[in-house]
Design a protein around this nucleic acid. Structure first.
Length: 489
RNA sequence: CGGGGCGUGGCGCAGUCCGGUAGCGCACCUGCUUUGGGAGCAGGGGGUCGUAGGUUCAAAUCCUAUCGCCCCGACCA
């Protein structure tokens, strides 16, 4: 492995790819656009999944699993939805392979062609609503609050590890309600859950808002989003929650009897976050030494690197081992790196690349004095602390690092967010990179023109918008909305 | 799908113009010395040069075909 990563300032895209691979988060799969999530990357995903899952359950949801293969006909039900996904669906046409009659290898058995082709889910709305039709008869059957953790496939052209791959892992919540109001409350409840996890656990500040007509989910009435700023000042959509109205209920003919014995279509929501969030953490917190993980989701919070010569080996390792045991008792996720095959210097760099929040160095001198060198990954700051105080002090230090990473991200975003007063200032900002908060006249043509001229999109209409007195940054007309614009991933 | 580029040990590349014993760096293995910021030295293993034809005494190199991949332009968590 060559040393280090490409500096961010030199080539941000390459820096990202370098970090993902060198921190052993993921690797490329053999099929274009596919990704192997390696154990270290997967354990980060597990931490995120746990943080979300406990909150889903606390808000009344249950997990279930629906099939990956979907009859092709299901996709022709909801017009807008089809339009959104048809172009990127993988299709299963045959069910068998056979030995190649002309020589080596295998070929598709032409006799195994399916009568109805199957598609691999690009999202599960259709199959879930097919099932909901069978499960819902009465208002007594509502609400249904189901979530599933699954993989999905979208045949993407331009792919990047975690950010956009042909197959990815995610969570999709699909709920059915008796009233529009209840479904809308659910939509907003879940975007708030997303905000909480991303900000509190991932230390990543987000802007909560609604998507414009052009940017919302195919088939949704209303889409809520959380948007974060990455290290190159571009925006990344980190999670979405959709109010689907009765669109899917109509498409799949899901009706229920009300208390008054009327027949009505069910109201729906869906919401999801994906492994893209792992990429978001890399890009939001990483530096030229690699990853910087927020302690709450770091698979390893504290790594202990022993430093010894032959004659001091036993003493140092004994101290390091008992320190490891002691810290594990205060529920710090700690790892003793006792590898004999690499040097301490290599380990320092290795764990910095992997973003471990705190490193403890223990050498012969430290053992003599009963101390350890404590190094923060976020600031690089070093200090010596007595061994017997570590168990008491480390939990607080980890919380401090968590807060510090969040604050650094908040400050960075603030530095690169402006309110451009005119079109020229806006263009300059978009070219330099950053978030623009400004007025929009609400016209889709204006939105399209802005995108065509600057590649910037309306990331969202923030919940705390206030358009009064604002003018549209493009047309100069009175603003109908206050929006956040940026170039996005 | 339009434009540009590349296929040579695990990874990154040189060699191709001008045919003549397949090389370099990293990684890997063994040994010794090392270990407080990516250790040093010595030795070692590993490639039918994307594939298939052709030209030639001889092809990584020339010719033809073919496959695959990457980058840039219209969509997306």
């Amino acid at each position: 492995m060559s040393k280090g990563v490409t500096p961010r300032s030199q080539d941000y895209a390459r820096w990202y790819t370098d970090v993902v691979q060198k921190a052993e988060l993921a690797d490329y799969g053999p099929v274009k656009g596919t990704m192997v999530i390696r154990p270290y990357g997967y354990s980060i995903w597990e931490a995120l999944r746990e943080a979300f899952d406990m909150r889903f359950k606390a808000t009344g949801h249950v997990n279930a699993y629906f099939p990956m293969l979907i009859p092709k006909s299901f996709l022709s039900r909801e017009a807008a939805h089809v339009k959104g996904f048809a172009k990127e669906c993988a299709v299963v046409t045959h069910t068998r392979l056979m030995a190649d009659p002309d020589g080596n290898g295998v070929v598709v058995d032409p006799d195994s062609k399916l009568e109805e082709e199957l598609i691999i889910r690009p999202t599960s709305e259709t199959i879930i609503w097919h099932m909901y039709k069978q499960w819902i008869n009465s208002y007594r059957d509502l609400p249904i609050l189901i979530n599933q953790w699954a993989n999905i496939v979208r045949w993407e052209l331009r792919t990047r590890l975690f950010l956009r791959t042909s197959e990815f892992l995610w969570q999709e919540g699909h709920t059915a309600h008796a009233t529009s109001q209840e479904a809308q409350e659910e939509t907003e409840r879940m975007i708030e859950v997303y905000r909480e996890v991303v900000e509190d656990e991932m230390a990543l500040p987000v802007i909560v808002g609604r998507k414009t007509e052009a940017e919302k989910f195919a088939g949704a009435v209303d889409t809520f989003t959380i948007e974060a700023m990455m290290g190159d000042r571009r925006a990344l959509q980190c999670g979405t929650s959709h109010y689907l109205g009765q669109n899917f209920a109509r498409a799949f003919e899901v009706t229920f009897r009300t208390q008054d014995n009327d027949q009505e279509y069910v109201y729906a929501t869906s919401w999801g976050v994906s492994t893209r969030l792992v990429g978001a953490m890399v890009m939001a917190h990483g530096d030229d030494k690699g990853l910087r993980l927020p302690p709450r989701v770091a698979p390893i919070q504290v790594v202990i690197v022993p430093i010894f010569r032959d004659e001091s080996r036993d003493r140092v390792l004994q101290t390091a081992t008992s320190l490891t045991d002691g810290l594990q008792k205060v529920t710090v996720r700690v790892k003793l790196d006792d590898r004999d095959t690499v040097s301490p210097g290599f380990k320092f760099n290795d764990w910095e690349m992997k973003g471990v929040p705190v490193r403890l160095e223990i050498g012969p001198r430290d053992v003599e004095q009963g101390v350890a060198v404590v190094v923060r990954r976020d600031t690089g700051e070093k200090q010596s602390l007595p061994l017997d105080q570590l168990a008491a002090k480390l939990p607080a230090l980890l919380e401090e690092i968590q807060t510090s990473l969040y604050q650094q991200a908040v400050d960075f975003r603030a530095e690169h967010t402006q309110r451009p007063g005119n079109w020229e200032a806006f263009k300059t900002l978009m070219k330099a990179g950053g978030f623009a908060r400004c007025g929009w006249d609400g016209d889709p043509e204006t939105e399209a023109a802005i995108k065509a001229e600057t590649k910037a999109t309306i990331r969202c209409i923030p919940l705390d918008e206030n358009p009064s007195g604002l003018k549209c940054v493009y047309s100069g007309q009175p603003a109908k909305y206050e929006v956040v614009l940026a170039r996005a991933y």
